[in-house]
């Protein structure tokens, strides 16, 4: 399928995907409710910060940080790895392969279409955050109009890294039975090094070199970077540098995912479902 034909098909894919997401809204709400980790982390650090702020973070800043984390996680999430695993296992992947459109494109549409619903469901959290942040949060965006496009670029980049990385791990399912363990390792590293469990600055006191390393690894750009951008914790220079690294990772994982997928298809053709 040519790129132009694929682009013509994409809006319909998104529309049908959205209809499907609406049909599954109850499940999605439960799934979102299971994202408790930011709140678990918040409980700990909030209690710690009550005896005095940790670096730049007092109790209020921590609340904003983890609520923002909750939102970023919701609107940049992907579950394509589970979908691929299941389709490879049950053989329904065959039906996808019979269609004259690249399967990864199909997955991306399904995934993307569900995000507005997730965004809408996490709106209350966003409102709570706005309330907590008060007028200073709003005025920050008014003072610097470039913040909005930068934040959007950061969120899109975060989603693309997550999605493409998952596609790459999912494609490993063609080669090995235990691709889900690879995914688990990824998930663990993501938790540890993305700023999900604590603002990465907290590492500075304990292990500065680890904190330095997180800036070079992709995980920070999936979560911590958009959060910090949202909360105004980054100056213009740091924001632009972050965006550059983030999008370099997008390109890298794009190449990796498509390449692994191509190899995987060859293998799937030889062994079948």
């Amino acid at each position: 399928m040519t790129m132009r034909a694929a682009l013509r098909a994409y809006p319909t894919l998104l529309r049908v995907g959205l209809a499907e997401a609406v049909a599954y809204r109850a499940e999605m709400l439960v799934w979102m409710l299971t994202t408790t980790m930011p709140l678990v982390s918040l409980a700990l650090w909030h209690a710690v910060a009550e005896s005095g702020p940790i670096g730049r973070f007092g109790p209020r800043e921590l609340t904003s940080y983890f609520l923002a984390g909750l939102i970023v996680r919701q609107v940049t999430s992907s579950w394509v790895v589970w979908e691929m695993n299941q389709e490879i296992r049950t053989g329904t992947l065959s039906l996808r392969l019979l269609r004259p459109i690249h399967p990864l494109l199909g997955y991306s549409a399904e995934n993307l279409a569900a995000l507005p619903i997730r965004g809408a469901l996490s709106l209350p959290v966003a409102l709570a955050m706005l309330f907590l942040g008060g007028s200073e949060g709003v005025s920050r965006f008014l003072d610097d109009p470039t913040l909005v496009p930068m934040l959007i670029a950061a969120l899109v980049g975060a989603w693309l890294i997550t999605f493409l990385l998952m596609c790459a791990i999912g494609a490993l399912g063609f080669f090995m039975e235990s691709s889900s363990s690879v995914f688990e390792v990824y998930l663990g590293l993501f938790f540890a090094l993305s700023g999900y469990l604590f603002p990465l600055e907290f590492l500075a006191a304990r292990a500065p070199w680890v904190m330095g390393a997180t800036r070079a690894l992709p995980f920070y750009y999936q979560l911590g970077f958009p959060i910090e951008l949202m909360l105004g914790l980054l100056d213009r220079r740091a924001a632009l540098r972050g965006l550059a690294i983030e999008w370099a990772y997008v390109a890298f994982f794009y190449l990796l995912a498509t390449r692994l997928w191509r190899l995987g298809m060859r293998r799937f053709g030889a062994y079948g479902a």
Binding site: A9, Y10, T12, R15, E20, A23, R99, P100, G106
Partner: peptide, 20 residues
């Protein structure tokens, strides 16, 4: 291939797009 929770007409629309 029918989408389980949607009417078949949605799958038809999807295939119209996919098969151009």
């Amino acid at each position: 291939q029918l989408l389980w929770d949607l009417p078949p007409s949605e799958t038809f629309a999807l295939n119209r797009a996919v098969y151009d």
